[in-house]
Amino acid sequence: MKKNLLPAIRLTLVCLVFFCGIYTTAVWGIAQLVPNKGKGFTINQNDKSYYTNVGQSFKSDRYFWSRPSAVDYNAAGSGGSNKGPSNADYLAQVQQRIDTFLARNPGISKQDIPSDIVTASGSGLDPNISVDAALVQMKRIAAVRSIDAATLKTLIEQQTEKPMLGLFGTSKINVLNLNLALDKISHK
C-alpha cells in the first residue's frame, strides 16, 4: 500500500495539471474562435442583446407564449417539475393551465391545444415550442396586434426550424426569435 501511495499522489497531480489545466485551456482557446467567444449565442435587436438558446418567460397576450416552467425561467437555477405522470396534483395543474389557455385564447377548443404548451419542460428554460403551439396562439395575437392571420401564418412558417437535414428530429419554433420578428412587423 505504502509504495503505491507516493506514485498515486504524484500521478494525480500530473493528471490535474494536464486534464484540468492543459485540456481546459485548449478547449477555451478553441472556443475563442466561436461567435461571441464561447459565451453562448446571442441575438441583437433595438440595441439589446438576448441569449437565443435560453428560453424566456412570455406571458402577455401580445407575445407568443413559451412553455410552462417549473422554475419560472430562472436561468440561474434550472429545473423540471419532476411530477409523475399519474400525480393528481400535477393533473389538476395541467387542467388549470388548459382552462387559462382557453380563457385567454377565445375561439380555440380543447383538442386544438398541443401538450407542449401546457406541460413544463425538463430544464424550465426550453427556448422552443412546437409549430402547433404557435399556430394555436395565432388568433389571439392577430386580435391583440390587429394583424391579419395570413401575415402571422407566413411569419410562423418563416420562423419554423426544420428537422436536422429535413429528416431527423422535431420541427420547432424559437419563441424569442418569433417574438422579435413579430415586434419588427408590428409595434402595437
Binding site: R67, G80, S81, N82, K83, P85, Y90, L91, V94, Q95, I98, K110, Q111, D112, I113, P114, S115, D116, V118, T119, A120, S121, G122, S123, D126, P127, N128, I129, S130, D132, G169, T170, K172
Partner: peptide, 19 residues
C-alpha cells in the same frame, strides 16, 4: 393527459424539451 382532452402529437412532453 389524453383524458384531459388535449392533443399529444409530440408524445409525452412533461419534463422534455421540444428541440
Amino acid at each position: 393527459l389524453t383524458h384531459l382532452g388535449i392533443t399529444q402529437s409530440m408524445g409525452s412532453m412533461e419534463g422534455k424539451e421540444v428541440r
